[in-house]
Amino acid sequence: MSETEEQSVTILISFDIDGTLEVGDPPGPLTMDMVRLVRDKDFLIGSCSDRTLSSQRALWQDHDIEVDFVVGKHMLADVKDRFDADVYLHIGDREDLDRQYALKAGFDFLWPDEAVAHPHFQPDI
């Protein structure tokens, strides 16, 4: 997707936390600045994790990042129902709990290291 195309469509990204984000346990390769980058691009963003909803909210609050949703691993389909977007993408590190859930919910899927290199996470030039 080109930069122009990216700007003309609504993109929703769901982030797993542990093993995906730098603040996860274990830490993943996606930095919070990368999350801020897509936030600034007006993407719809949120987290989809086995962490409690309250701790997901606290995590985003601690990093001063406003998110559109926090859900459990099994709730990606709800996210798709709630938000009208052209692209639904989940990023996570687990085959069973991330990739399979994502594909089942009709999301595209990227592994964390794939996401880091994806144009979504490159600054607009």
């Binding site: 086995d50 962490r51 409690t52 909803l53 309250s54 701790s55 459990g72 709730m75």
Partner: peptide, 25 residues
């Protein structure tokens, strides 16, 4: 020591099933 997270009713009841009716927590 590591994750001082409370486990309120919303947190508990929103969790996914592992072996229904046993959820993650």
């Amino acid at each position: 020591q590591h994750r001082p997270e409370e486990l309120g009713p919303e947190d508990y009841l929103a969790s996914r099933w592992i072996a229904k009716p046993a959820n993650l927590f």
